[in-house]
Design a binder for these strands. Structure first.
Lengths: 203, 203
DNA sequence: TTGACATGTTATCAGTCGATTACTACAGTT
DNA sequence: AACTGTAGTAATCGACTGATAACATGTCAA
């Protein structure tokens, strides 16, 4: 019959708590879209109370904006890390780096989701800025031609589509799913499948 | 001081009204995403009352599912119409056909949006089925190789991204927007720009 | 130790939304 | 003209959600 057992989240510095919430929010926003996600779901996923999430980030919209910016920061980071090496292999290394972002839950879906919200004044601005950063990185740091950059991003968007549709679950059963996955990941289909949830999994 | 002037929508056969609502719903869902759209907004856009939309379609989810299926029907239709002609020009004709779908409001964004909802049991099934129909059409009727089909769909998804982000508004001002639009629509940038809303337009 | 700030919660509200119910009016058939 | 099914609306409700207010507890410098 102890009396304490405060159901309060263990104390943490606000900066660390913010990062923890941002990671949880990325996963939830990625799984359920921006509008479809409640601040309460984010709070539960992060192990704190719903009002605290709102207090730390101001509004749900500001939270999502930070999630988007953090995601693009991270993406540029892994791309930059894939630059060193033979110039010919650069595209492949960066493609692999993108695919490996699948392990960071919600990151790719958040990108896809943000690109659908260009009509939202605040979110749209941030989403366009993120896209612009990626494009300029490809053109300037990675030294891609416009056509190479276009092809690279187009492939990324197709991968986002595959992820969003949960197509990996149909691999082997459905001709189209099998073929498109083989075409997108000639060497890594099995690995990708293990990283992705089935259609009915919560993720 | 006339007394009549019933604010009721003019009588119409239910089948016609359904089609009218589906068209309006495509525009609204496309502009504001599935979760972000209210049945009342759809009703206003179609000029009927909100309960009537619900009664005709059962639920908002069923309405959206019909919107998705109608969109894929239409897309297959314009692709099929682009088949006849020289085999070498087939890819270009179909690409043009896809771009021309921009005039049918919300259609491309609805596709993009549906691919993000693979985790929703009902919607996910329909979205995967639509993707599968497109892929099989490309492989069988259009006789694309897997690699050609992959490239075609990837480009389509990039176009959806450009549309969703409202990137056309930055053409000429922003290097990345200018370059990616030039790369995606080498011959039709101006035409595409006239078809698309600016970032702050309601569409 | 104490006080002051930082970290976190519970309680609650006001607005929104999908859906249901009950009702009205038009149109075609006999 | 009366009957009947179809097309449509107004009113309303319960559930949900983002945000606010008020309060509690831990931490750390002086």
């Amino acid at each position: 019959m102890t009396v304490e057992s405060v159901p309060t989240a263990p104390r943490m510095k606000a900066a660390d708590r913010r990062e923890l919430i941002l990671e949880a929010a990325t996963a939830v926003f990625g799984a359920k879209t921006y509008v479809g996600t409640t601040t309460d779901e984010v709070a539960r996923a992060a192990g704190v109370s719903q009002p605290y999430v709102v207090r730390l980030f101001g509004t749900k919209e500001k939270l999502f904006i930070e999630v988007i910016e953090r995601t693009y920061d991270r993406m540029i980071g892994v791309f930059r890390a894939a630059l060193p090496g033979t110039p010919e292999g650069r595209g492949d290394r960066m493609g692999t780096a993108y695919t490996e972002l699948l392990v960071e839950r919600g990151m790719l879906p958040v990108v896809a989701n943000s690109t659908a919200l260009g009509g939202e004044p605040q979110i749209g601005r941030v989403a366009r800025a993120g896209f612009s950063r990626i494009w300029r990185f490809l053109r300037e740091e990675a030294e891609f031609s416009p056509e190479q950059a276009r092809e690279f991003i187009a492939t990324g968007m197709l991968i986002n589509t595959i992820v969003g549709l949960r197509l990996t679950g149909d691999y082997g059963d459905e001709v189209s799913a099998t073929e498109v996955l083989d075409a997108c990941f000639p060497d890594a289909v099995q690995q990708v499948r293990t990283l992705l949830p089935a259609a009915d999994e919560p993720w």
